[in-house]
Design a protein around this nucleic acid. Structure first.
Lengths: 152, 152
DNA sequence: ATGCAACCTCAAGCAGGCTTTAGATCAAGC
DNA sequence: GCTTGATCTAAAGCCTGCTTGAGGTTGCAT
């Protein structure tokens, strides 16, 4: 099993290896391929072979998911990456910076929410109609696009 | 319609009023009841009647969801609230504080992630095996219980 | 007393993100 | 050559958090 991995310079790796390296389930990788997030070539026997660089690509997906991005959003980010060509350091830096600002705004949002919550704790928060935290308008405004479970 | 609402001191309100006051869809409220997050009594004609305090209860659910908690977690928090008895100021304060620490730890997690990401941007992050951001162990450890889409 | 909005109960559906199952094929070591 | 493990496809299933639809009942105003 490991033999295949250590067989020197083989740029094309089977799905199982990619799974091991990324920690993803094989089925998840196939799913990502179906979604168009990674691509593979096929062997004569119709088995997938991935580029080593796809391990990086998939790892990026994992990071982005951790930040709360949905696959669709991740796809958008990745679309700027050259398909098939090994992404450069600069590619990754650019995308990473974009993620950084994502994180920043999430932190800001949470901080604002915390401040509001503090006010509520202070006031006992039984006058809920005027409570900043569950103001309807506010809620609607905060929702925006993207998966709604991601701390809007 | 509003007549019913303004009919003075009627402690039991129909689902539509609850919906209006909370901004929730009627169907969502019924769903929450099914899940056991709120309770209602029935009229002779089998219609739900909620306590006014349930509006607060539901609002709390909305706030908590906004913080990224899943319904199961919210249920746990609410379990500490007296069912049927109107929650006191202290009840809400206690729970709000618990939420506050939730937010705090989320902010911390995000901040740590941001720091790691900064390192990655600095290093170009092509030596991904050793990259803090997608270390497998780390990922597993961070996962924990609850909905996995909430910024583990 | 009648009309109409609000309410009721199932049951099914949807979106996102995968996993599971079934049945078949491939590839590599002995 | 054979066994064994990895891989393949396609379709179905699962979980969360609801919404939608169908078909029927209640209850308030006039």
């Amino acid at each position: 099993m490991l033999a295949r991995t250590s067989k020197g310079r083989n740029d094309l790796v089977p799905i199982g290896v990619v799974a091991q390296r990324t920690g993803l389930a094989v089925s998840a990788i196939r799913y990502y391929e179906e979604r168009g997030l990674v691509a593979s070539v096929r062997t004569e026997g119709n088995q997938r072979r991935f580029l080593r660089s796809d391990i990086r690509r998939l790892s990026f997906i994992l990071i982005a998911q951790r930040l709360g991005l949905g696959l669709a959003e991740i796809e958008r980010e990745l679309a700027s990456l050259p398909r098939g060509r090994t992404p450069t350091v600069l590619d990754w830096q650019r995308i990473s910076r974009s993620l950084r600002s994502e994180i920043d705004s999430r932190i800001q949002l949470l901080t604002r929410t915390r401040n509001k919550l503090d006010e509520c704790i202070g006031c006992g928060c039984l006058s809920l109609d005027r409570c900043a935290l569950y103001n309807k308008e506010d809620r609607a405004a905060a929702a925006g696009p993207g998966p709604r479970f991601v701390l809007d």
